[in-house]
């Protein structure tokens, strides 16, 4: 299991290849990449991501472990950035490796749903010079509820 919480950018291709290379006997690797999106056509200047350092790594590890308990996985990787990002920047990635694709797909989705609303990150958008905290969406809570 590899969990990284960092400010530095990372290369999704390199990380995916390295993750895949360490598991010679898996039949499936699923990756998800989260990218800073500008919904307002060019007015998003930046996205600031705050986190709770003492809790973040622990919370992600717990969720990664529940994914491993629930599905037949060879490995899990989560990289999540914090600090100031701009549209187009990669925020985070999740990768799951399994013998079969269903486990890898479902575990990746489960992890994403958990990271969205249970990992201690908060996004603040800067739009035309004004800050605004991104509000949690009911949709994300609903997505989480389906795993109960």
């Amino acid at each position: 299991m590899k969990i990284l919480v960092q400010t530095a950018p990372f290369d999704v291709g390199h990380e995916t290849n390295a993750f895949t290379d360490t598991h010679k006997n898996v039949g499936a690797v699923v990756t998800f990449t989260g990218i800073v999106r500008d919904d307002d056509c060019g007015s998003l200047d930046a996205m600031e991501i705050e986190h709770y350092p003492a809790m973040t790594h622990k919370a992600i590890t717990q969720h990664a472990q529940s994914a491993q308990d629930r599905w037949n996985l060879a490995d899990v990787m989560v990289i999540h950035r914090y600090g100031k990002l701009v549209p187009g920047d990669v925020i985070m990635m999740v990768a799951t490796a399994a013998r079969h694709r269903t486990d890898a797909f479902q575990a990746a989705e489960f992890l994403m749903d958990y990271l969205k609303s249970r990992a201690p990150f908060w996004k603040k958008e800067w739009i035309d010079g004004h800050p605004r905290w991104v509000e949690a969406k009911q949709l994300d809570e609903d997505a989480l509820a389906r795993w109960d």
Partner: peptide
């Protein structure tokens, strides 16, 4: 030892 208060999280 520590109690933290914060808004609903918006990771991912």
């Amino acid at each position: 030892q520590e109690v933290a208060f914060f808004p609903p999280m918006t990771g991912g």
